[in-house]
Design a protein around this nucleic acid. Sequence first.
DNA 1: TCGAGGTGATTTGATGCGCG
DNA 2: CGCGCATCAAATCACCTCGA
Length: 555
Amino acid sequence: MTKNAVQLQSRDIAVLTDLRNLTILSLDQIRRLHWPEASREICRKRLSRLMNHGERWLRNFTVPKPEMEAVGLQPGQVYYLSETGRAWFRGQERPPGKLPRQRQALHDLLISEWFVRLSELARARQANLGWRADWQVRFYRSPNAERATLVPDGLAILTGLTPQPLAMFLELDFSREAHGRPSSRIGRKIRGYDAYLKQWFKHAGLDGLDYFPAVIFLTHGRQRLENLAAAVLKHRRENVAYGLALTGQVYQVADPLAAPVWRLIPAHRHTVSEPRPMLDSRWLASLQANLRPPLRLLQVAKPPETPPPSVQAATSAPAPPQPAKSPRAMPAPVNLPATPAPKPPATVAPSARPKLLCQTPILPAEVVIPTRRGLLANVAHRLSTRRAGTRDTGCVWSNQLLQQAVAVGIPVQWQPLPPPARELFNRLKLPPPPGCLTLAGVSLFTDHHFARIESLPHRLAAYRELAFLWTEQQFRPSFPRWTMLILPEPKQAKAFFETAQQQRRIINFCATTQVEFTQSSLPLLSTIWRLLPAQQTCKPVSLEGRPLLAWSTAA
DNA sequence: TCGAGGTGATTTGATGCGCG
DNA sequence: CGCGCATCAAATCACCTCGA
């Protein structure tokens, strides 16, 4: 057999990407996604070439025909990424996805089928479908949690179909377990989504969403569907919207969203509808109960008093139908972050706080926000283990940003760098960044350690390696979206921008200089930040100064 | 030259059936 | 119950044309 190299075409890359996102796809599913007009044989032949020639990007296995037919799938070979295929994604500096689990092949194929159905629907209606895999949207109750609280089967985002993008977590109920008890898998799932709703806006995997997605449960058997609906009503404590349907029905109708096969539970109502289309206006409107908390950045010139509710509405999406809000619909902005912002120390007048902080080279212990224990510990450790010098200003600056964010009502979180990540930097003989700050749901490394210009390329390479390590070891939260740099000298800033501009970046960088930072009364909001979003090419980006939180539109 | 696409031949694997 | 054989469908392969 000839083993000629296979040149990857754009369609091949699309197939590999789908396999990375969905883990496995059947021959029929790949054909429907990428060869919708062609025969099965043509698709199979290309996959065979990707599998057996050159680099051998794919592998396959057989799921018994009766098993596939029993769940309504077209029988055929099942494909997944080979180690070469996974390595290709690592080479592209993108996560390689997860390994297939042959014992759960049918479950995973049904998840893929939902993606394929939505793709076909999007294609027919000139809409767009985005998909985030389970490893991208899994939820950990706290940064130090050992295990994920909740692992949805995937997140689909349909844009162009409804006025607001339609975002749906998928839960495929493939088990035979009863739903009744809170300790059952379904009971834990429902409680898990309740917890997710309280923190979703901090999750990097849910960036770009304006509201908490609905939860779509697909199950088998009518009685099971009834039990599932009852379980949702029984266990649900928060305003999570659910849509329930039978796998068989959803996968048989031509348009799964427009067909009246869904039992809908709106976010703010304790009722289960009769079978209706998912594109039900009232149910869709109920999703707006879980809007992303507004940043209110432009109102922060005033002290952090509770803003009137109208201010919050004015900065959110334009005029969504306002459902009747129950007390637990959404945390009130003033309560963000979850723990109430502490009162400033009596020695510091509230009006003087920002100015004082920015003029203080080393943060006095009494001004460190006591509730931010991680950062407090970090600063305290640094101050106690070595003399406070320039190396500690990074932590001080982090604390300043943290305090400003709390003062203006932006949700913040701090997580020290995980030990394996710290070891990576140590191994590369580079000072590690202190940790990861999450501002308004966007996580970022805070880094202030550019002592020498020569170390810049190594440092950028270290972040690339860290991105792989982060994915491989499944650190929480997901890999921070941005890396914030405060560059000590103008010449180092210039060198950094030149280096980063010339590189194909996988990390989003936002950088400023020490001078600009210290001279700004409110660095968080000032236009002192140069944003260098990740991109696959070396195309230069504008280095015009922007506010730090402009990142939401930059990448 | 290489890949896409079409067609038909061959191989492979699952299944059913009969026989000892 | 185990074995061999027949049958069928799916998978695979070979060879072709066409077009970029």
